[in-house]
């Protein structure tokens, strides 16, 4: 397996609080990995370190052989990193089609690919609609299409199902998984919906109090007593 993304001993503190503490892991081509943990475990900070919103105090992030630890977000993107946001971030003054066109132009690809891209995320026929007129689940799909426009090597999904109801959650995860498989994109996602986590992740990373406390297959994680303890908060769990 080709390693696409590697985090080496990442550390980040704010004031006296260590938010991410010695976190290391790898992501292989076309692999789907979930990052979970209780609130305040350091998932968001870890995510921000990867996407470039924050720089690690120490440690490295290697994307397909390139050290991107200190690069600005837009430079990381050009190195092959894509991301979505927890609250879907789209260009609110634009139509669906313009949103995707913008992403394609920014990626140096022809806007002619927009139809194909929209079809891939299940939005065929909605191109002319203003993005703000869409249902939230569709807005998330627009965002996913934008993140995929550059055909990233690694795609970070920050709570892909947040804000969506019932069956829509599964559908968007299916879309993401199918696209990752097709393009060989490695997926790293944070998620609260355990159905989504256990249904779609090849591997699960668990964080607690800034540390990575477990890294394993869904079955291994299910049986891990440390993980049970942090999730249930029972000393005897």
């Amino acid at each position: 397996m080709t390693v696409m993304l590697e985090a080496r001993a990442l550390r980040k503190s704010f004031g006296g609080l260590v938010a991410v503490d010695d976190v290391s892991f790898t992501l292989s081509r076309a692999e789907r990995v979930a990052l979970i943990g209780p609130n305040g475990a350091g998932k968001s900070t870890c995510f921000n370190l990867l996407s470039g919103e924050a720089a690690p105090d120490t440690g490295q992030i290697i994307l397909d052989g390139t050290d991107i630890s200190r690069l600005a977000p837009h430079v990381r993107q050009r190195a092959g990193l894509g991301r979505t946001f927890q609250i879907a971030a789209v260009f609110r003054s634009m139509t669906v089609s313009e949103n995707v066109t913008t992403a394609l132009i920014a990626a140096g690809r022809s806007p002619d690919n927009r139809r194909a891209l929209l079809t891939e995320v299940g939005l065929a026929g909605l191109g002319a609609r203003l993005v703000t007129d869409l249902a939230y689940g569709d807005i998330k799909r627009v965002e996913m299409a934008m993140a995929l426009a550059a055909r990233p090597k690694v795609l970070l999904l920050d709570e892909p199902t947040a804000g969506m109801a019932g069956p829509e959650r599964t559908r968007i995860m299916e879309t993401a998984a199918a696209l990752a498989d097709k393009n060989g994109t490695a997926l790293l996602f944070t998620e609260h919906d355990m159905d989504a986590v256990f249904g779609f992740a090849d591997r699960i990373l668990v964080m607690d109090q800034g540390r990575l406390i477990a890294d394993g297959t869904p079955d291994e994680i299910r049986e891990n007593t440390e993980v049970k303890r942090v999730y249930l908060g029972d000393p005897d769990a």
Partner: peptide, 10 residues
């Protein structure tokens, strides 16, 4: 309830 277009509880 929720935040903007994103619904969080039903």
């Amino acid at each position: 309830a929720g935040y903007g277009a994103a619904r969080a509880i039903s």
